[in-house]
Design a protein around this nucleic acid. Structure first.
Length: 433
RNA sequence: GGAGGGGUGGCAGAGCGGUUUAAUGCACCAGUCUUGAAAACUGGCGUAGGUUAAUAGCCUACCGAGAGUUCGAAUCUCUCCUCCUCCGCCA
């Protein structure tokens, strides 16, 4: 959510910044709504004030035993109640309208975000590693995994449906090894605090991180009370939701506020609207594992923290010796809540393309404002909004895809990356039994 | 799943229809005293919104959440959430 005070002060300036994101802010609607809100709120509060004052006088009269005076004062309030209720209704309506308007406005992009409409306009920042040249025709992970009889999409269709996967034996172990390797690296070498969180969350949390109310169709909903639908839960689309919401409604006291969490969770996405995209293989699934990094920091640090965060994610690919490039997202490709985002794209020989494997974003105060995540600034002594950031470190399923395709051998076997050997119980190669 | 009891400021804890402007204690901050500290004493000490040049005043709201009764609700009623105790079931 944007700062309504900034919007009031200069809506045109905010609109100009949002334009970079391809979002047209309706300044006229905002301004007229704001004018109504102001008038109605002042009116309502004045009515409340007079009611409070009369009630107090009635109380005093009752106490003094002056029943006539009390009755007389009561008579005065005859229409006050109705007027007040009417005013309150109006106020609720206009405030509700203002809130939904605000909730629908995306975050403002950082000054360093390049202009552009789509992912084609993202700007490459750096490359690491050289795409390996094979002396044979490189296969994609589906052909490799199925030939090894370790990856089975048909079984997943039978058990559940499309966009799910079943993994067997050494491949399942490699998948698990990746998760352990990533978490250990972030905890032992990057100083993250490991956290285990629920995979089902309430609507309040999703509102805090910005998935609701706008993107409900991307989520899997789990009905709890079928009749009222009031307390329905949602499967998390990313650990960002439960982890970032740990600081919701908190005022953190740390003098140099900086929390770093790492969490491994499955992620569930309905992928509504992506029919036909990446239908082959494990690239786009309804369920996938992800190791997520979340930072909560003081506002003046978030720019630097974003650079640290991207670096931590990149280390995983470097240790796995997987070639990648890092891009900064252009305004048009930036997510709803993001202030600035770097994507890390890993080289996939099967597609001969760099594909997204991590997305690291500074949300600035956009999420904090929604969820009232604050810290006490020792310089002012007052609670101020913290900044939140998150990034994949990394998407486990896609990393597995990258390993299959980059570490494939001519006979269809897969060499285990050196960094994962300690987790593989002596296995050095994935080969057909 | 059944029975009962709770949710009040950073914490503990009173209040159970009307000067509540939420007592009191602890913690915290400032001051007095002191060479310094402690103790003692004095004062301060919530959050959000509105208005405003203002982080000055003033106003409004907030006692788990929402709705209701009332001139007036922390206090009464209803619904929900949540915690605790006991019983049952259970990885």
């Amino acid at each position: 959510m944007l700062d309504i005070k900034a919007l009031r002060a200069d809506p045109e300036a905010v609109a100009a910044q949002l334009k970079k994101k391809g979002y047209e802010l309706d300044v006229a609607t905002f301004s007229s709504l704001e004018e109504r809100r102001k008038a109605i709120q002042i009116d309502t509060e004045q009515l409340q004030q007079s009611r409070n004052s009369v009630s107090k006088q009635i109380g005093a009269a009752m106490k003094a035993g002056d029943k006539d005076k009390a009755a007389e004062l009561k008579a005065q309030t005859a229409t006050l109640g109705d007027d007040l209720n009417a005013a309150k209704d109006q106020l609720n309506e206009v405030q509700g309208a203002m809130e939904s308007l605000l909730e629908g406005i995306p975050n403002i992009p950082h000054a360093s975000v390049p202009a552009g409409k789509s992912e084609d306009d993202n700007v490459e920042i750096r490359r690491w590693g050289e795409p390996k040249s094979f002396e044979f025709t490189a296969k994609d992970h589906v052909d490799l995994g199925e030939a090894l009889e370790m990856l089975d999409f048909e079984a997943a269709v039978k058990v559940t449906g499309s966009r799910f996967a079943v993994m067997h034996s050494d491949l399942a172990r490699l998948h698990r090894a990746l998760t352990q390797f990533m978490i250990n690296t972030h905890v032992d070498e990057h100083g993250y605090s490991e956290v285990y969180v629920p995979y089902l969350v309430n609507a309040h949390s999703l509102k805090g991180t910005g998935q609701l109310p706008k993107f409900e169709e991307d989520l899997f909903k789990v009905p709890v009370d079928k009749e009222s639908g009031n307390n329905d839960l949602y499967l998390i689309p990313t650990a960002e939701v439960p982890v970032t919401n740990l600081v919701r409604d908190e005022i953190l006291g740390d003098i140099n506020l900086h929390k770093k969490f790492v969490a491994h969770t499955p992620c569930f996405r309905s992928e509504a609207g992506s029919y036909g995209r990446d239908t082959r293989g494990m690239i786009r699934q309804h369920q996938f594992e992800k190791v997520e990094l979340v930072h909560v920091c003081r506002p003046d640090r978030s720019e630097d923290v974003l650079e640290e965060l991207v670096g931590h994610a990149e280390v995983i690919l470097q240790k796995l010796e997987l070639p990648y490039r890092t891009v900064i997202l252009c305004g048009g490709d930036l997510g709803f809540s993001a202030h600035k985002t770097y994507d890390i794209e890993v080289w996939l020989p099967g597609q001969e393309k760099y594909r997204e494997i991590s997305s690291c974003s500074n949300m600035a105060d956009f999420q904090s404002r929604r969820m009232q995540a604050r810290w006490r600034n020792p310089e002012t002594g007052r609670p101020e909004l913290a900044h939140t950031l998150n990034g994949s470190g990394l998407a486990v399923g896609r990393t597995l895809v990258a390993i299959l395709e980059n570490y494939q051998n001519a006979d269809g076997s897969i060499t285990v990356p050196e960094a994962l050997l300690p987790y593989m119980g002596g296995k050095t190669v994935l080969a057909k039994a």
